[in-house]
Structures are given as C-alpha cells and as structure tokens.
Design a protein around this nucleic acid. Structure first.
Lengths: 200, 200
DNA sequence: TTATCAATCCCTATAATTAATGATTTTACA
DNA sequence: TGTAAAATCATTAATTATAGGGATTGATAA
C-alpha cells in the first residue's frame, strides 16, 4: 500500500556529526533511499516530531536522550507511535522499547546486517518498560553525590539538613540497588545527570 | 617533493565502525585521496605501525588509547615520528601531543574546516607532556576504588593489609589531586582503567 | 654505594557515612 | 477529603574513611 512517488521519511538524531555521517553513508550502502532529516539534540528532535509528520524510521543515539532514558524514549514513542525506532548505544545502554538496538561496538559486518534487517523486518509491538523511580529531589542529591560532594556540602547546597540528605541517600541506594559511590557516579554519568568534566 | 605516483598513506584507528565510516566519508568530501588502512583496536594499530611503513597521516579516536593516554600517545609517536597525528576525542580528553585535536561534538562546519586544515597545515613540533605518575600497584588500587570496593575488600582482593590500601590511596589522591571517590571513578573511566559495566 | 622509590605495614585521632527507626509537613491525585 | 508519596528533620550506634604521623624492605638508577 505504498505510494511509489512518496519517499521513505527518515530521521537521524545523534549528537556527533561523524556518527550521523557514518549512518548516512551506511544507509546508502544498504540502499535505503529516503527523505532524510537530521538533528544533534533532543529539543530539536522533539520539535521535528511535533511539527512535521511522523517519519517512517527514526535512528537515534542513546547519547541524546535525557534522563531517565527509558522515560525519555517512552515520550518520544508517543510523539511518533507508528515509526520504526532504532537506538544505537554503548554497552551499558539499557535495552529499551525499540525495534532495533545496535551497539556502537558492532563491526562492519554486523552493523550492515542489523541495518538491512531493520528496514526489512516488520514493525514489532512496543515493549512496556517501567520508568525511573527517583524523585526530583533524589535526583538532585544523586547529582551532588556523583559530583563528589560530601553529605554536609550537599546539605548546604540544597539548603536542607544533613539528615535529610542521608534520608534521600538511603532512598536512592535502595531504589536503584546501587550502594557504592562509584556505582552511583557511573549511573549518573550514563543517565546524563552529570558530565564527566564537572566532577571534582 | 612528492612523488605523484605515490598516494598519501593514511591510517584510521577508532573503536567504532560508524566513526570510521564517517571519517572516511568526510575524507572524500574534503578531497583527500589516499591509501587507507583502518583498525578498531590499539594492538592492531601498533602492529600496523611496526610492520608497515609509517603512514603520512594517522587519525585516531581517544577511546582506543590505553592507560595512561598521554604515555600511550607518546609511545605511538615513537612508532611513527614523522606522521601527522589527529586525535578525535570527547570533551574531557586531555589536550595532548598531536598536530590536531578535534572534539566529537564539533558540528559539520567546524569538522570540515578542521579536516581541511589538518591536511594543509605543516607538521608542527611535538609538545612534550609529562606522563602519568601512578605506580602499578596504585593503579590496581585505583581500579578497585572505582569499581566501588571498600578498603577492606580491596585489601582482601590484593592480599595486602588495609593499612597498605590506605597508604596507596593517600598517594593516589595526592598524586592526582583528586579527593573524591566520584572523581577517581571518572578518572578511571576516562583512562579506560575500568569499564562502566563492571562497577557495582 | 648512596639515594630514591615502590610496596608494604602500623598508630592515633577525627571526620564522614550507614543502618535502623521514627516523625512531621506538604503536595498531588483519585 | 482521604490517601500516598515526597520532602523534611531527628536520634543512636556502628562502621568506614581521612589526615597526620612513622617504619621497614627490596630494587634500581646515579
């Protein structure tokens, strides 16, 4: 039921230009012809999805997703319920609600196969994933922990008592199941709560 | 003084296929014609430099460098003292001994300019940078800290007393000037001492 | 053959974090 | 309007980490 005079609509969202360029080259290798749009940030992506018509395919890097990634993806899904979604991510990217997940570490052969499959396979049903459970305040505290602040410093920064900080910490560790500061730091990094160069 | 029948030798080293593909596409956009080799890991890169003749240009991603990055780059330099070196890295990559440093976050325009300049500008002199100062044992302890282990656990793992661990820790923090666990974790991540998915 | 450095160990005292429990106030939602 | 969750503060005890000191051994380079 396709109109042969209507090209496939494809949208690429990745923060890195070299990545987008690689993806585009790969698309031409695979033989996908499309009306192609691209963006390097989440805001513009959301704008494009809101104001334009739904693309047929959306290829995005996990690095442009905001925290929490799962929630962010869910919201994107709502913006384009009919499109096929491919997420390219690092080893630690949570497997999420998308038709195709590809790791950045895939070699040429695998990457080619995955891309070919993506455009051949029928659209799958969305998988429901539960989203993040941290409250706003807990996220603030988590950020501060990951930045290397001590409880007292966090208390001063957020204008609360150190007891409250400790309470939040307890809730964070029990909710996430991550007990060590390093673990929390990595979590915060992976979820773009902080940037590596902010840490003291 | 170039032989017109001899193509430029160029070597691309990046862990990610999409990156290499993007770089190659960019090279053809810029109009660089070359004998091109590529690799996705450090070992193969070193092999290529040892066994083949020196390339004219070496483009590498900071992600394939082993710890410490500066030392690793110095060693690579010795392997190919005459080649022009471009390093593409993240925001937190240390500015290092190379002719051209490009951030992954550069947009199309800047990336194009930087690539064009790289192949036009004359080779600069190497900058001497001091290398890492951590001892082997200190690196072991740092790894363990970044993985989220407590002093006691580190002691058990390394078969030393907790006092020794504390001593090493003191030396590490004073050498690096990084006091917080999060800071040390980020340092370990950036220097590929650990991987994010190993952290507990 | 001295220095130097890495690696190991120890002590004391203070600071910081965690565990276990509990309580109050505000906010959001059904 | 009642309930649940979030955000706040608190106490006590136990555990861990940090900041100062030192000390010994073995390897290695000047």
């Amino acid at each position: 039921m396709e109109y042969s005079d209507k090209k496939t609509q494809l949208l690429i969202a990745s923060d890195q230009y070299l990545n987008r360029l690689g993806i585009k080259t790969l698309l031409s290798v695979v033989g996908v012809e499309s009306d192609l749009k691209e963006t390097n940030n989440l805001e513009e992506l959301i704008d494009l999805l809101k104001n334009g018509k739904d693309p047929d395919y959306l290829i995005l890097s996990d690095r442009i997703l905001s925290y929490p990634q799962k929630k962010c993806l869910e919201n994107l899904r709502k913006q384009c319920p009919t499109c096929k979604l491919m997420v390219i991510g690092g080893e630690t990217m949570c497997r999420c609600d998308c038709e195709k997940f590809i790791s950045y570490s895939c070699d040429q052969k695998e990457m080619l196969e995955q891309f070919q499959n993506f455009f051949l396979e029928p659209k799958s049903l969305a998988i429901n994933v539960e989203s993040s459970i941290l409250s706003e305040r807990e996220i603030e505290v988590l950020k501060a922990i990951a930045l290397g602040l001590a409880n007292k410093e966090i208390a001063d920064r957020l204008y609360i008592s150190i007891h409250t900080v400790i309470s939040h910490r307890k809730n964070i560790t029990s909710k996430l199941g991550i007990k060590s500061i390093s673990g929390l730091t990595v979590y915060a990094l992976l979820n773009s709560l902080i940037h590596a160069d902010e840490v003291k």
